[in-house]
Computed example of a mutant assay.
Amino acid sequence: MNTTITNSRLKASIKHAGAELFSLKDNQNKEYIWEGNPDFWGKHSPVLFPIVGTLKNNTYKIGEKEYELPRHGFARDMEFELIEKTENSAVFSLQSNEETLKKYPFEFELQLIYTIEETTLDIQYKVINKSDTKMPFSIGAHPAIALPEKFENYAFEFEKEETLKYYLLENDLISDKTKVLETTNNLVPLDYKLFKNDALIFKTLESNSLTILEDSKPYIKVDFEDFPSLGIWTKVKAPFICIEPWLGYSDTANNSGNLFEKEGILILDAHQEFNSKFSIQIL
């Protein structure tokens, strides 16, 4: 099943499977979200929960008990329930169940709240800890922006001038190796060579937004003020770019395995809720 929300400027369509945004069109019917061709990557904009990235050996511990979780967690592969709908907004909910408790021993509710205002789509995450104990988690976004022109016709512009230090992945884990993304007049021209070692992972940024330019003109802006970390990723020759606001990231090679000690993890107190939001603005 799918749900569509609209206003006079935008139309967004969301699958109930994974509560995944799969289409964002302007009033000229131009599509801004990657189509999901599996020859490159069969997703569009999955939610990453209750982890972001990869665990060391795909396992973690709570106390002495070991659990397995796949890359980016399980929420993206589960069916959400539509619990509220207006013309320009929709709320989707995923509740913990027997299946999730085997992989992640916490009772929770995850809500994704989509709202269109003018030319902006807001995507809010609400995490509710229904357990009687503290709950460790990460959450992140993975929207793939469609790039209809040649890849080299696009560039990034970060909100602030800063040293763009990113971490390299080794065997899908965060290594100690870093590089600096070179800028020219605060711009980063897109080049597939940037992604030869997989994603660019920024643990911290001063910028709270990033603008994609198409032929030197503003195309899309992604705001991620609530998210300290950012991933940027594509596949060679793929006509999309993923701008990924994250709260958390892959394990480091020396991670202890204890989820409460994981670098970048969030800890939510019993019966409390956590909210964060990012937005995609059509320019």
Rank of each mutant, 00 (worst) to 15 (best):
I220L: 08
L247C: 14
V188L: 00
F92I: 00
L194G: 00
E31G: 07
S229G: 09
F224R: 01
L110M: 11
N254T: 12
T183P: 00
S256C: 08
T183S: 02
S175R: 07
S256H: 12
E149L: 12
T119M: 11
E170T: 15
D77G: 10
D223W: 08
D176C: 01
T204P: 05
E157G: 06
H271F: 10
I212Y: 04
D215A: 05
A270H: 06
N208P: 00
K196D: 03
S209K: 05
G53F: 03
K65E: 11
V127H: 08
T252H: 14
S8E: 15
T3Y: 13
Y192M: 12
I280D: 01
I123Q: 12
H44I: 06
E225V: 07
Y219D: 03
F158C: 01
A146D: 04
L164T: 08
F22Y: 15
K235M: 10
P239V: 01
K165A: 02
N258V: 12
H72F: 02
L168Q: 07
I174C: 02
M135G: 10
V47T: 04
Y125I: 08
T115D: 04
L10Q: 12
N97E: 00
E68G: 15
D226E: 03
E81W: 11
L268R: 05
L121D: 04
Y167R: 13
T163R: 15
L283I: 12
Y154R: 02
L169R: 11
S279L: 06
P105K: 11
N97P: 03
E68P: 15
G264P: 05
S229K: 03
T163N: 15
A75S: 14
N37K: 13
W41S: 04
K103M: 12
I33Y: 03
G264R: 11
T4R: 10
K15T: 10
R71E: 09
H16V: 13
N29R: 09
D26E: 08
A253E: 13
H16M: 13
G257L: 07
P228Y: 00
S279R: 04
L110N: 09
F195Y: 01
H271K: 14
D77N: 14
L283S: 13
K56Y: 02
L173S: 07
G248T: 09
P245R: 03
I139K: 06
E214Y: 07
E206A: 11
I62D: 05
G257Y: 13
E66T: 15
E35H: 15
E244F: 08
T54M: 05
F260G: 01
L173W: 00
Y166E: 12
P143D: 06
L168C: 05
P136Y: 11
P239I: 02
F227D: 05
K56P: 00
K262V: 07
D223H: 10
V91H: 07
F240Y: 15
L205G: 02
G53I: 06
N37P: 00
T59C: 05
K262G: 06
L48V: 06
P50N: 05
A19Q: 06
Y125G: 05
E214I: 01
T163H: 14
I282W: 03
K61S: 12
K15A: 10
